[in-house]
Every structure is written in structure tokens, then in C-alpha cells.
């Protein structure tokens, strides 16, 4: 091993262009993609071939796993539920988080940094802590087992992230644009809605994407708060896991199905989100 990983990077940067760079990117990408490739290829394998050694990468693919999960599992319902919950969470997080973030970015008041810090620290909350009281609360208002219950708890984490992200984004936006556009004096809300928001589109897209990813993947909350008709894809994926015989091929084929929508969304939004994370940091 070389002295320090950072040192390594610097040496790479110096070598710079061409071969070296390509090789390093290739190695990292292989590391990041290898398990995904295993997952996707396994979903096209016969059950008996999953653990063949040496591992098989080229083989006669079968669709039987996909047929099984579409035939035996309510995968359309799970996908729809996952979509409802993650889109609902995203919309709610943005509705709650973005106006607050704009105000936190544009207004000065005492205790502002403390406030932003506390919002960010919501992310530190261990899920197990709030699970039980939250469930009792949802039950008492009759929301247990509904999509809404999961949306409400996912939004706690996602709204916090949205605020954090958007405060940085709004702060990085020059205030002069808003002032210039409203020489004749717009209302505060109008400035926010008609001028700041459109300019902040990349930031909004990024916040939305992160929120989608987080709630699309949520397992623990969905497990504790949904009922069978509102169950999500991750729960479905896990239900292929028998104790004695794991349905590896079924699990991976459902997982392949579950990745696709998000991957498409991410590809579609890619021009926004790298730009969108250009924030100014917490002030």
C-alpha cells in the first residue's frame, strides 16, 4: 500500500490524462458494478445454477424467474404502492421543505444557524426510536396500514434533507436577480414562486431525486406501517426469502424490476442533478 489514499490520488492526478486515468476509472466502476451485474445476471439464471463455481457470466438466459414473480406475486401492486409512497413523500417533502429553506436562506434572524443545524440533525435520529411511538400515533388517528402513514414518516427524514440542500442552493443564488425582477415590488411569496423557484429547478430536481431514492428503498418503516394492500417493493423482494431455500433468482429478478424505474428517472434527470447540488454550504 502506498502512503495514503489521498497521496495516491495526487499521484494519479499528476499522471493525469490517458491510460492511467481510464484504468483507475475502470477499476472503480467494475467495483461499483460487479454486484449489480451479479444481481441482474442471476435473475436470468436457473435456480440450480446460482452458486456454480467458477461463477458463470455467459449462459443461456431464462425468463422463468420473471414469469414466476409476475405470476405468483402481486408485483404490479407493490410497484404502484412504492410509486405512490415515494412520489407522495417527495411532493410533501418539497412542499414543506422548500418554502422554509427559501426563508432560512433569505432572512436573517437570531438562532438561524442553530435552527438549520437542528434540522440537519434530524437525520441522526435512529429509526427504531420513533418507530413504536409513531405507530401508536398513526393507529390513534386511523392511518395505520395506509400509504399516508409511510409518507408521513419518510417525509421527516426527507424534508430535513430537502431543507439542508435547498438552503445552500438558495444562498448560492445571487439575490440581485430577485431584486431586479421585482423593481416595482412583488410580494414576498410572489418573488419566491415566480422568480426564485424557476431558477432553483436543478436544486429541486436533486432534492426530489434523493427523496425518491430514500423512500423507494425504505424497508423498516414500510414494514412496520403498511398492511398487505399497501406493501412496497422492498417488502415484496424480501418475501421471496424462505428460511430453508432462499429464492435468490426470484429475489434478484424482483430487484432488477425495482431498479429500472429509478434508473430511468436518474438518467432522465442527470443533466439537472449534478448541477443541482451546487450549494453554498450551511451558513
Amino acid at each position: 500500500m502506498m502512503s495514503s489514499p489521498l497521496g495516491q490520488h495526487l499521484r494519479w492526478a499528476k499522471l493525469g490524462s490517458g491510460m492511467m486515468r481510464t484504468i483507475i476509472i475502470a477499476v472503480l466502476v467494475v467495483f461499483l458494478l460487479f454486484p449489480v451485474i451479479w444481481l441482474v445476471t442471476t435473475s436470468f439464471k436457473e435456480r440450480i445454477d446460482v452458486f456454480q463455481l467458477p461463477p458463470q457470466w455467459i449462459f443461456q438466459p431464462t425468463m422463468s424467474n420473471f414469469e414466476y414473480v409476475f405470476d405468483k406475486k402481486p408485483i404490479e401492486m407493490w410497484t404502484l404502492n412504492s410509486l405512490i409512497i415515494s412520489v407522495g413523500t417527495t411532493i410533501l417533502s418539497l412542499l414543506l421543505g422548500v418554502p422554509a429553506a427559501y426563508t432560512l436562506a433569505r432572512r436573517k434572524f437570531r438562532g438561524k444557524s442553530l435552527l438549520i443545524t437542528s434540522i440537519l440533525l434530524i437525520r441522526a435520529l435512529p429509526p427504531v426510536v420513533i418507530l413504536i411511538p409513531f405507530r401508536v400515533l398513526m393507529n390513534s388517528v386511523g392511518l395505520i396500514g395506509t400509504h399516508t402513514a409511510v409518507i408521513l414518516i419518510d417525509t421527516i427524514y426527507n424534508a430535513a434533507f430537502t431543507v439542508w440542500l435547498m438552503v445552500g442552493y438558495f444562498e448560492a443564488m445571487p439575490v440581485e436577480i430577485e431584486e431586479a425582477a421585482c423593481v416595482d415590488g412583488c410580494s414576498y411569496f410572489r418573488t419566491f414562486r415566480a422568480i426564485a423557484l424557476p431558477l432553483a429547478t436543478p436544486g429541486l430536481v436533486t432534492a426530489a431525486l434523493f427523496s425518491l431514492i430514500l423512500s423507494w428503498n425504505d424497508f423498516l418503516f414500510a414494514l412496520s406501517l403498511t398492511s398487505p394492500p399497501s406493501a412496497t417493493l422492498p417488502l415484496g423482494i424480501l418475501s421471496t426469502f424462505g428460511m430453508l431455500s432462499v429464492g435468490w433468482t426470484y429475489m434478484t429478478s424482483m430487484c432488477t424490476i425495482a431498479i429500472l424505474p429509478l434508473l430511468l428517472i436518474a438518467l432522465f434527470l442527470q443533466k439537472y442533478y449534478v448541477q443541482g447540488l451546487t450549494f453554498g454550504g450551511v451558513k
Binding site: 476509472i25 472503480l28 466502476v29 461499483l32 458494478l33 460487479f34 454486484p35 449489480v36 451479479w38 444481481l39 446460482v50 452458486f51 431514492i213 423507494w216 428503498n217 425504505d218 424497508f219 417493493l233 422492498p234 423482494i237 424480501l238 426469502f241 435468490w248 429475489m251 434478484t252 430487484c255 425495482a258 431498479i259 429509478l262 434508473l263 436518474a266 438518467l267 442527470q270 443533466k271 449534478v274
Partner: peptide
Amino acid sequence: MRILRTVILLPTLITPLVVALTWKALLN
């Protein structure tokens, strides 16, 4: 580069529990 920037996001698009099980299989 643009494509790679999306492709490398793949690991974050998988439910952590499934990620764990996948690695359990890979590292059996």
C-alpha cells in the same frame, strides 16, 4: 462521463437490505 455519473449511482438505487443479501451471497 455523463453516462458514468448516472451509472455509478446504481448502488444507491438498491434497497440496503437487498444490498446486504447480495453481498452475503457474493462473499459466502
